[in-house]
Each structure stands twice: as C-alpha cells, then as structure tokens.
C-alpha cells in the first residue's frame, strides 16, 4: 500500500480499520502522523457514517414519497397531455402512461408530497411521462451536460427536471 491508497482507506468508514492500513501506518511515519492529527474527525465521521439510528424521521408517522403520489403525478401529467392542444402536437398519439397500478396499491397516499407534486411538479412530469421511450438528450440538459455543477448556484432539482423536460420535448417534437 502506498500513501495515496492509505488516505483512501483512512477516509473509508469500513476500510479504515483494515489490517492493510494498520500495516502501512506501522511502517510510514508520515501517514501515522496524519492519522493522529485527523483522528477526532475520522472517528466522528466514521461513527456517524456507520450509525443508521442517527437518522430518525422527524415525522415518523407521515408517509414518505409514496408510489401512489408518483402514480397520481403520472396520471395528472397524462391528463394534462390529453387536454392540451400543445401536448397533442408534441406527444405521440400512441402514448399511454405506464404504471403498474396493482403493485402500487399497498402504498399510502402522502399529503405533503401529493401537494408538492400537484402544485409544483405535475406539469414538469409531462416531459418524462409523456415520452417514456425517449432516452435522447440535448445540449440543454443540465445533467448530461455536466457544466451545470459549476454553474449550479442557481439551479435546483426542479431546474434539472425542467432542463430534462426540455430535452424530451425537443426530441419528441423533432420526431413528429
């Protein structure tokens, strides 16, 4: 093991107790000194990383992102697509939303998420839901064009969604 790999091991919550790392630290004063300096941080970070119980939901009784809410969003998106002249022009007429509704039934509806979906995301689901077979992307997609992360100060999850929607709409328009 070289010093580079030793740092990878030191900062890995699982590997930092490995015998290989211990052997290297025994033989390498530089890494040993670094481990001593960083020790409180390494110990606390490792402990936090391995402690699943530290993550408690502040609302344990509230449902978390239920599949039903996703299904509602997809149905809403499909409904909007059917109602919209613009969508009629953009969305292939053979499109049917593909949801395995039977499998979802055991999930509960989530009020907060449903509101979020209906108020904020419903429209944006149009792109992803309306064109499920389309995997093409374009220059506007924030994710596939990784420059977004440099300029991400002003971006949000919704912005990513919007940008991806733009990809799908552009692609579906050009395919008509």
């Amino acid at each position: 093991m070289n010093c580079e790999t030793a740092f990878d091991y030191l900062t890995d919550p699982v590997l930092n107790s490995s015998p290989e790392l211990r052997r290297h630290l025994d033989e390498c004063p530089r890494c040993r000194e670094m481990e001593e300096v960083l020790s409180p941080a390494l110990t606390w970070m490792t402990e936090a990383a391995l402690d699943d119980e530290a993550i408690d939901s502040p609302r344990p009784s509230a449902p978390f992102l239920t599949a039903e809410t996703l299904a509602v969003a997809d149905r809403l998106a499909a409904q909007l697509a059917r109602d919209s002249e613009t969508r009629r022009e953009l969305v292939p007429s053979t499109f049917q939303p593909q949801f395995a509704s039977r499998s979802w039934s055991r999930w509960r509806a989530g009020g907060v998420v449903a509101m979020l979906l209906l108020a904020g995301f419903g429209g944006w689901f149009l792109g992803a839901a309306a064109n499920p077979d389309n995997t093409s992307t374009s220059a506007v997609c924030l994710w596939t064009n990784r420059e977004w992360s440099a300029a991400a100060v002003d971006q949000s999850a919704k912005a990513i969604t919007m940008s991806c929607l733009a990809c799908h709409l552009a692609a579906s328009t050009s395919s008509l």
Partner: peptide, 12 residues
C-alpha cells in the same frame, strides 16, 4: 423532492 425530480427526469 430529490426523489421526485429523479423520477421526473428518469429518462435522462
């Protein structure tokens, strides 16, 4: 919201 966004742009 992260999961919703991921689902919404799952094709990308």
């Amino acid at each position: 919201e992260t999961f919703l966004a991921a689902f919404a742009c799952r094709q990308s």
